Computed example of a mutant assay.
Amino acid sequence: MPSIISELVDSGRVRYIIKDFPLDNIHPEARAAAVAARCAGEQGAYWEMHNELFAGQSEWGGLGDGAATVFATMAKDLSLNSADFAACMKSGRYDAVIQANQDEGVTLGVNGTPAFFINGFPISGAQPYELFEYAVGLAEQGTLADAYVSADEDAAQAQAPPTGPVEVDTEGAYSIGDEDAPVVMVEFTDYQCPFCSRHFLETFPKIKADYIDTGKVRYVFLDFPLTSIHPQAQLAAEAARCAGDQGAYLQMHDVLFGRQDEWNGRDDAGQIFNGYARELGLNGDVFAGCLAEGKHTAAVQADLEHGIALGVDGTPAFFINGNFVSGAQPFEVFRGAIESLLGNPG
């Protein structure tokens, strides 16, 4: 949340509204905490109490009626009028509005917390800041609705995500690592996807150092361009393959992700890719011809269709020895999955 406040709210890009959704059956003190924040708000300290409640959650969570004493101490520490705060807590005057918030959330389909709506479009769960930045950017461009339409269309085409190992066809795909490695990790990627870029920059290097370079993992690259929201992604995937024709797939792959901000959203992305090819020492005319004639268009689309058939509906998506892992997960998630497959659980 600090990043959302500093980067999106304080900059004037976002107005942030908080509504209450206490899950009483598993968090019995949550409703009283919501009241405490509102009672502090009467004295101009809603946000201060909000922050204290989350920072000191371990001090009052699970205390039952005893949580009220902690809330009173927090109010005192915030230099609030203790008598007024205590009277407010006992008054019940916020019971109806908190319940109305919860009822509204249920009507909107909320069934857990945190839950967010950006210009009316839902985002569920404690997502990384990059997702909110991305969604706000789409909203500012007026294309946020398109992303949800695309997701709905993909979901309609896609199978349900697999719950067990599946067979992923990797014949002819680019890969790195020992061909006989005990673990095969397949990534379905979109070169214009910010989460794929984050995976490449933050997590992939650790996977490569610990598992690919040590012969434990063969890493396979498959394409999944979400062209309705990433219009240059298809061409970028073809650019990587055109570079691959000259033995430089991985080098182009790395450049495309490492310099994503240079070509993202650009109508002249093809010319930029031609420039990258020259920088990599490739035959520029051969590369440009490959890209212009769409030599690898069908192959990229075949990957996309294969992914949809497997249940992929977003990027990045991974299959580790056929086991599905969704999203730009932290390295620890991949390490746990790989070690388990290597016979080293825990």
Rank of each mutant, 00 (worst) to 15 (best):
residue 210 D to Q: 09
residue 256 L to D: 11
residue 189 T to C: 08
residue 246 Q to L: 01
residue 226 L to I: 15
residue 259 R to H: 05
residue 215 G to I: 10
residue 242 C to M: 10
residue 245 D to K: 13
residue 267 D to T: 13
residue 194 P to H: 02
residue 263 W to Y: 07
residue 238 E to G: 04
residue 223 D to R: 03
residue 248 A to E: 05
residue 227 T to K: 07
residue 269 A to F: 03
residue 293 E to L: 10
residue 220 V to D: 05
residue 294 G to L: 12
residue 207 I to L: 15
residue 205 P to G: 03
residue 239 A to Y: 07
residue 259 R to Y: 00
residue 212 I to S: 04
residue 211 Y to L: 08
residue 191 Y to W: 11
residue 198 R to T: 12
residue 158 A to T: 00
residue 204 F to E: 14
residue 279 E to H: 05
residue 214 T to Q: 08
residue 240 A to S: 14
residue 230 H to V: 08
residue 267 D to E: 13
residue 171 E to Y: 04
residue 290 C to E: 06
residue 185 M to W: 00
residue 220 V to M: 04
residue 225 P to S: 00
residue 255 V to D: 03
residue 185 M to I: 05
residue 272 I to C: 11
residue 200 F to C: 00
residue 227 T to D: 12
residue 253 H to E: 01
residue 286 V to Q: 14
residue 274 N to W: 06
residue 263 W to L: 06
residue 172 G to L: 02
residue 260 Q to V: 07
residue 212 I to C: 05
residue 223 D to N: 13
residue 168 V to P: 12
residue 210 D to V: 02
residue 286 V to K: 11
residue 266 R to E: 15
residue 250 L to T: 11
residue 232 Q to C: 05
residue 278 R to H: 03
residue 165 P to L: 08
residue 189 T to V: 06
residue 261 D to K: 14
residue 199 H to F: 15
residue 182 P to N: 03
residue 235 L to G: 10
residue 189 T to D: 02
residue 189 T to W: 02
residue 184 V to N: 14
residue 243 A to N: 08
residue 292 A to M: 13
residue 198 R to Y: 12
residue 169 D to W: 01
residue 178 D to G: 10
residue 214 T to A: 07
residue 161 P to K: 01
residue 186 V to I: 07
residue 250 L to K: 15
residue 257 F to L: 07
residue 207 I to A: 03
residue 198 R to P: 06
residue 266 R to D: 13
residue 184 V to H: 09
residue 258 G to S: 06
residue 277 A to H: 06
residue 197 S to D: 11
residue 181 A to G: 11
residue 282 L to P: 10
residue 220 V to L: 03
residue 249 Y to I: 08
residue 208 K to W: 01
residue 290 C to F: 08
residue 249 Y to E: 10
residue 194 P to Y: 01
residue 253 H to Q: 04
residue 250 L to N: 11
residue 221 F to M: 08
residue 189 T to S: 15
residue 190 D to G: 05
residue 196 C to I: 03
residue 268 D to A: 02
residue 176 I to V: 13
residue 195 F to S: 11
residue 234 Q to K: 12
residue 275 G to N: 03
residue 253 H to F: 09
residue 191 Y to Q: 06
residue 219 Y to C: 00
residue 284 G to D: 11
residue 240 A to E: 05
residue 228 S to D: 14
residue 292 A to N: 14
residue 251 Q to A: 15
residue 253 H to Y: 11
residue 163 T to M: 12
residue 187 E to D: 06
residue 251 Q to H: 10
residue 293 E to N: 13
residue 226 L to K: 10
residue 173 A to Q: 08
residue 206 K to M: 09
residue 266 R to Y: 09
residue 166 V to D: 00
residue 199 H to I: 09
residue 245 D to I: 01
residue 231 P to C: 11
residue 197 S to N: 12
residue 279 E to T: 10
residue 209 A to L: 08
residue 237 A to M: 02
